[in-house]
């Protein structure tokens, strides 16, 4: 297959369809995944292709959706449970954190829980405080879970395909603002390794570590920085667990300066963990403090102005990098 233009949504759908064709044990279960086609249309028409026994519309029962996926995975299926919004993850946290994440360990390695929990999060649709959050820290804070957050169309496809071959439970968080993202992709080209970060851009002055939608904002900011003579390396983590810290380390050691960008709220978040690790592990190479550019420590508003202001965007990232670089020059 040659290069073709595809959306993030269609890449996800194709990943599900290809996995279901390849492996008859892959099933999908969740709210509105079948006849409705998915709240964000990712599973559109899959029920026609694979039937209602494999694309299962469920009642609005998030805990039991995840719990049933746990049992199905233990009994030999490869379930993809869909959680319509990551904001509902609190409803499912017992099944996810106490069951799925711990079963391999508690049972002495007898069995794993090879399930994928597909969900989406983030701002961008004025969806309000309970439908706009970035809750990946909850997942990253739970040993036993894997966490993938694709930023690109190709990664949406490859990471989901790979997630469906992994022996441990994978939480797969899409970004609601990326579904219409269109890129040219060749999905037959070799897939990047699972657990390996991508270098989206190389520069000598600082490293910006990010993931999911913020990758695009950071790239936009990096262009503006380049116009100011500042060259940034941009690292797209792709998966937060496993975390490719070696790539971060290599590039931070080269530039001596690091910024972490995350849409999730700052305090005790993913950005906090990444900044702490960079500070500890790259201490001798750092010329400045590691800067966190993260969501404000507030709920998300419906107002577009407040919503946009609550999370990092290209301008905040650009300004923060400029300040970081100029603080050095001032000394």
């Amino acid at each position: 297959m040659a290069l073709q233009e595809m959306t993030y949504r269609d890449a996800l759908r194709k990943a599900l369809a290809d996995s279901m064709t390849e492996n008859p044990d892959v099933i999908i279960l969740g709210e509105e995944v079948g006849r409705y086609g998915g709240a964000y249309a990712v599973t559109k028409d899959l029920i026609k292709e694979f039937g209602p026994e494999r694309v299962i519309d469920t009642p609005i029962s998030e805990p039991a959706i995840v719990g049933a996926a746990v049992g199905a995975a233990m009994a030999g299926l490869r379930p993809v449970a869909e959680l319509m919004y990551v904001d509902f993850i609190g409803m499912t946290m017992d099944q996810l954190a106490n069951q799925a994440a711990k079963i391999r360990y508690m049972f002495g390695g007898q069995i794993g829980v090879p399930m994928v929990l597909r969900t989406q999060g983030g701002t961008g649709r004025s969806a309000g405080a309970q439908h706009s959050q970035s809750l990946e820290a909850y997942v990253m804070h739970t040993p036993g879970l894997r966490l993938a957050m694709p930023a690109t169309v190709a990664d949406a496809y490859h990471l989901l395909r790979q997630a469906l071959t992994k022996p441990d439970p994978v939480v797969f968080i899409e970004h609601k603002a990326l579904y219409t993202l269109k890129e040219m992709v060749d999905l037959d080209a070799p897939a990047p390794d699972w657990g390996k970060a991508a270098i989206r851009r190389q520069g000598r002055d600082l490293v910006i570590v990010t993931y999911s939608r913020q990758v695009h904002y950071v790239m936009e900011a990096a262009k503006k920085l380049a116009a100011e003579g500042i060259e940034a390396t941009v690292i797209d983590l792709r998966t937060l667990s496993p975390l490719d810290f070696d790539t971060i380390r290599t590039h931070v050691e080269k530039t001596g300066r690091a910024m972490v960008v995350s849409e999730g709220v700052m305090t005790a978040g993913v950005a906090a963990e990444l900044a702490a690790r960079i500070s500890e592990e790259c201490f001798d190479f750092l010329e400045d403090p590691v800067i966190r550019v993260a969501g404000e420590d507030i709920p998300i508003s419906v107002s577009t102005a407040l919503e946009t202001g609550s999370v990092p965007g290209p301008q905040l990232i650009f300004e923060s990098a400029m300040k970081l670089l100029s603080s050095r020059e001032a000394v």
Binding site: I27, P63, V70, G71, A72, A75, N98, F107
Partner: peptide, 20 residues
């Protein structure tokens, strides 16, 4: 498929096992 220390925690797994 496991004993459980969360009251009710093991119940939905049998739904999944039933699907399987």
């Amino acid at each position: 498929l496991g004993a459980n220390a969360i009251v009710g925690g093991g119940i939905p797994a049998v739904v999944g096992a039933g699907l399987a």
